[in-house]
């Protein structure tokens, strides 16, 4: 029998899981102000939201499609959709989650339509970042002219392994490992439970581990 105390404990636990961090809360508050201005007719205020989220939105879509042109089109489409339907945004979730949901759903729809037409159009890895530079050095273990070829080969193998995942598994890995979202946020964006997110993430990692095994045994 479920007691009242048990329900209260469960509610507290759920509240802890759902409640956002202070940083996320501040971000959501600032977004809600901008969104309210756009809803009141200030079209220029939407540019602030574009500047704030364009890189993250593009990054997610690019990692899902592995095609920079498609990613550019889909990111613009996501912003246009959010702009057209921003009057329907009621603030029940953060604008960030809402925008991500639009972008992910648009991308999943595009991937389902063009499942048989997959080709890469990869961005160049930015080696200005010291962390990336060191990582590339550890993985390729080469210098000079061979180093660029090795980096390119590594990038292609990584994207190939990524594209072998199903769309849902790829989305979970992208949002968690690359974009750094929490399980709860991914669950909200993908409209599924946190357990489902964890299960998909575990399964996707096993597949990627098997695909990229040669790079781990160097």
């Amino acid at each position: 029998m479920i007691t009242c105390a048990a329900v209260t404990e469960a509610s507290k636990a759920l509240g802890k899981t759902i409640s956002a961090s202070p940083e996320r809360q501040r971000e959501a508050d600032s977004d809600s102000d901008i969104v309210r201005r756009v809803q009141e007719g200030d079209v220029a205020a939407f540019d602030q939201l574009i500047l704030k989220y364009r890189q993250r939105i593009y990054g997610v879509i690019y990692n899902l499609t592995s095609n920079r042109e498609d990613a550019s089109d889909l990111a613009q489409e996501a912003f246009i959709k959010s702009f057209q339907s921003i009057h329907r945004f009621q603030g029940q979730s953060s604008f960030f989650t809402w925008l991500y949901r639009i972008a992910v759903n648009s991308t999943l729809s595009h991937l389902r339509k063009s499942r048989l037409r997959t080709f890469f159009s990869l961005e160049k890895i930015n080696e200005d970042d010291p962390v990336s530079r060191e990582l590339i050095a550890a993985v390729t273990d080469s210098t000079g002219a061979d180093r660029g070829a090795h980096v390119k080969e590594l990038q292609e193998r990584l994207n190939e392994a990524f594209q072998k995942l199903s769309i849902r598994h790829r989305t979970v890995v992208t949002l968690f490992e690359i974009d750094g979202l929490s399980h709860q946020q991914i669950a909200e964006i993908m409209d599924c439970s946190v357990g489902t997110v964890r299960s998909r993430l575990h399964y996707a990692k096993q597949l990627l581990q098997a695909e990229l095994q040669p790079y781990f045994n160097r």
Binding site: R54, G59, N126, E127, A138, F216
Partner: peptide
């Protein structure tokens, strides 16, 4: 993240490489 070159890379480290696949300013 551990970026020690002498240490064997993990899957998480490899996936972080994809973060570095960013377009240039002209793209934006």
């Amino acid at each position: 993240m551990n970026a020690d070159p002498k240490e064997l890379p993990t899957l998480e480290n490899l996936l972080r490489l994809k973060r570095a696949e960013t377009p240039g300013p002209e793209f934006w």
